[in-house]
Design a protein around this nucleic acid. Sequence first.
DNA 1: GCGGATTTATAGACGGCGTTCAATTGTTTA
DNA 2: TAAACAATTGAACGCCGTCTATAAATCCGC
Lengths: 191, 191
Amino acid sequence: MLLSEGHKHLAEVGFARFSAREVAKRIGYSIGTLYNVFGTYDRFLVALNTRTFQLWAKELRAELDACGGDRIRCLVESYFRFARANRNVWLAIYDHHLPADFVMPEEQDWLRGELTHIVVREVAAALPEAVKPQAPTLARSLLASVHGHCVFDIAGSFALMGQREPVEMALARVRDTLTMAARDGEESRAQ
Amino acid sequence: MLLSEGHKHLAEVGFARFSAREVAKRIGYSIGTLYNVFGTYDRFLVALNTRTFQLWAKELRAELDACGGDRIRCLVESYFRFARANRNVWLAIYDHHLPADFVMPEEQDWLRGELTHIVVREVAAALPEAVKPQAPTLARSLLASVHGHCVFDIAGSFALMGQREPVEMALARVRDTLTMAARDGEESRAQ
DNA sequence: GCGGATTTATAGACGGCGTTCAATTGTTTA
DNA sequence: TAAACAATTGAACGCCGTCTATAAATCCGC
């Protein structure tokens, strides 16, 4: 209840205007109760962001299942679609910086890994046999590239720079790298 | 004075713990004075972030001037170096989301363009003649890719994923794209 | 069924925040 | 010097996250 209403509130007002007090008030709880449950504002936000990761992974799996041939395009488009459709909760994941001494509950680690693992699997499938071992590293790197495009898109930086079609740009960068990796694979086979 | 001390305070405590009140107190100003000058917290932060952009562009130019042969590597390394050396003020640029109705003073627009323009020039220099017109679009896309790697690096996501050498990874992605672009150039010449 | 123990919930208090504004101080001009 | 103007102030407001003493609810052995 605290989680679902909190997630709704976060989606409505965004990270900067989010308030744990307001969430408690909305569902008729006292502020003290919320703090008894989560202990601290940071931990509450971590729990909400974990919820976002769960939602994200679920949608990604669904879209991959419903995907036709081009699974790499599907991945990239899904990344942008989720961020755009869930702007505030998506941004909150990256706006919320944990204190250096914060120990993350395993829960979130595992779920972030879930998303990454999906991408690793798809990247591996797109690579020729000779370079498949590079898939984990390559997948994380491509994730970062797509993320960068998505951040600029959401923040409006691309619009300011007169750039359009950020999804296609991100996809093109991914294809560049996959093509180059495939070429490496051929060379190592030719030797 | 408000700007320099504010920038220092932001660098010390980071975006989340930053407070305009504290800045005013530190230099012996009243809180009211700060608000007469900047009008609002958002505008104060925009001014501080503009300062960060200025510093960033200055360092980038200096490092390019002192750069040996590999100017693309120099760009990527400089991006990471600035973000790492100025973690809090760099993060503040991306953590501070403006209200939708906010009209950005031209100042910051111009300075952001400054950084981009440097990158565009260097990317153009790295491209064969046939594809040089793509330089502006390509440069912004590569900026996004490097930014994505840098965000994950600063946030510690790469470390969590067991990934090392984010700078080299980002550089590799840039080279992938530049190589592919060069190949496109050759093909269009061959036709 | 009951009374003590233990968990859970409450709301008031605290200091700090961004923001506003009437009052004050300082500066220029006539 | 006196009046007009500009700059500065800090108390007041309603928020915030956090803590804590108190009250309510739940459980459990008898």
